[in-house]
Write a protein that binds this DNA or RNA. Sequence first.
DNA 1: CCGGAACGTGAGAGCGCTCTCACGAGTGGC
DNA 2: GCCACTCGTGAGAGCGCTCTCACGTTCCGG
Lengths: 350, 350
Amino acid sequence: MAQLEPSPAKPVATLDEVARVAGVSRATVSRVVNGSTKVSADVRRTVEKAIDRLGYVPNRAARSLVTRKSDSIAVVITEPASRLFNDPFFPRLVRGISAALSVRDLQLVLLMPNDEVDEQRTVRYLTAGHVDGVILVSLHGNDPLPDQLAKRRIPAVVLGRPPRGVDIDYVDADNRDGGRRATAHLVERGRRRIATITGPRDMVAGVDRLAGYRDALADAGIPVDDGLIATGDFTQAGGEAAMERLLADCPDLDAVFCASDLMAVAALGVLQAAGRRVPDEVAVVGYDDSPIATTTRPELTSVRQPIEEMGREMVHLLAGGIEQNGRVPRHIVLATELIARASSAGRAMP
Amino acid sequence: MAQLEPSPAKPVATLDEVARVAGVSRATVSRVVNGSTKVSADVRRTVEKAIDRLGYVPNRAARSLVTRKSDSIAVVITEPASRLFNDPFFPRLVRGISAALSVRDLQLVLLMPNDEVDEQRTVRYLTAGHVDGVILVSLHGNDPLPDQLAKRRIPAVVLGRPPRGVDIDYVDADNRDGGRRATAHLVERGRRRIATITGPRDMVAGVDRLAGYRDALADAGIPVDDGLIATGDFTQAGGEAAMERLLADCPDLDAVFCASDLMAVAALGVLQAAGRRVPDEVAVVGYDDSPIATTTRPELTSVRQPIEEMGREMVHLLAGGIEQNGRVPRHIVLATELIARASSAGRAMP
DNA sequence: CCGGAACGTGAGAGCGCTCTCACGAGTGGC
DNA sequence: GCCACTCGTGAGAGCGCTCTCACGTTCCGG
């Protein structure tokens, strides 16, 4: 007798109802909703009033069914927890992406596969054409995803220059120039025995930043001393080990450029524990300009990437790829900025 | 003549095609796809082979149209950038949510409204019934969203106990108990003049953590000295100001419980700048156990919240709310954990 | 004054799926 | 040997929308 089942949600009106109320055909309402110009002004007004009155909102599923577009794009983040959780890179990036999508009235479907099973689910989901495009964050070197997407002709954009000759749209920060700026800054500050703690040698970002380091030294006419180059892995632990090695092998170093802030923090700790004053004896520069850069004493000079902008650019690129599917891949490389703080303050100011 | 337009994407098979290949009706294929038991074993096998051969994947839009469910839920993050970007809380939370949704084969639609316009778009999107449920992260006190969702009968779960008597499902960490644990830990370590830097007084989490502080002092029979309570705002700047005030007013303090790690880092800096040795003279405890807790010297004792688990629990709760819409609201409060590090090491060990 | 272009509108098909209902073939009890 | 079932399967309607095409007006040039 009583109504026991959960009361039905979603009391939204349909096109048909709007049409009836406005006294026009479904087609006309559809035209109004989709902003067609071929509707007379007063009919448009009548329809709009009806839409307002009924609180009509188009049913995305129905629209999607006929247009064969979902008006949503997927953001795939396949990043090990360590990176994901240790700096606010991803929130920023996603925020940039989200803002740009919102303007275009596209939905953001977030995928964060955790394991093999998840990953397969993700591939199936993407290749099934449930989204109009895909943004790939943190692609692994041998990730088959780009190829699979290309085969299905699903537009995709990746973050960061892909390692192999993967032919795909990408957005990257200018890591090489960033490394160059950081190192040049140290040179300007009068440093001559400049060490570096690199990222992993199999990651493009790490390799590029190191290349920038070499560039800057070459520009300054300072010969590269391989003893001053230590390989890290972007993490604190790796940075610590590398700094200890450097200090032992090259006790005369007067500056360190670290390819991540996390490693810079570690280096700072090791230097201070060894009794080296920063920046007086040794200057330190990090990379990423993450929030921890301002929590250290002294605060950390760092290279800032335009993260939000990278997100926005990925969306622009993707939108272009959706519109003209199959066009030649484009690449966008954004400039970085050096944020000078106390950790590299001059001993020999000009 | 030649095919000039971008080649059509999404060459996916339909139910009909599978049916034709398998020599059965659409209905039967649908039953197989949806795991109905009312299909004989060999027909099922035939159909499955056909599905495999054609690489068939159901069209979500079409399914959605008839079932009136989208199989996706929205996660709404309306957090000021400062919080969002200063600690990896959100990546962790979203990861927990994502993992739990993935198991249930639900899609995660992420919404991060930036401004007023965005916010309205978000409301429209959610109330239009485009998602089966909503997870609200970081609700403002006077946010109309929960009410609007309730009116439309759209299941929702919020993170954190809502301030007013909002009657809604929520998941929270036990902030009060966390504050109690942190303070009790300091008592155990022999501290007696224990100060605290609170969160904003209009945020539930801040108020609760302070209540826990009072609880612990009461348990230990230590009278509360209001001079030892300074109001912060979870940020570094706020923590700095509060610590300076405390140091000026109560130079005899021997410990500080800070309601966030960011404030604890700031307090540490102020204390060290003032020549107080940590932990020998003053012990410091933070809250959140964020990565910066291990970048300070000494490393920071902190209260850890089960962030991923909170995400998972939100999904469980939401799934329940979707299944039995309109049921009485449920609340889940998860325990915290104290992570002891050097910043609160004992001066007076038992 | 008429032919035809331009414009606004409506009718109707159909997107791919689920689900109800009907139906035929087995199965078993009396 | 018949009726009542159960069980597996198919036919067909319809979800809400877009889009093509056809139709009726209006307007203008010749």
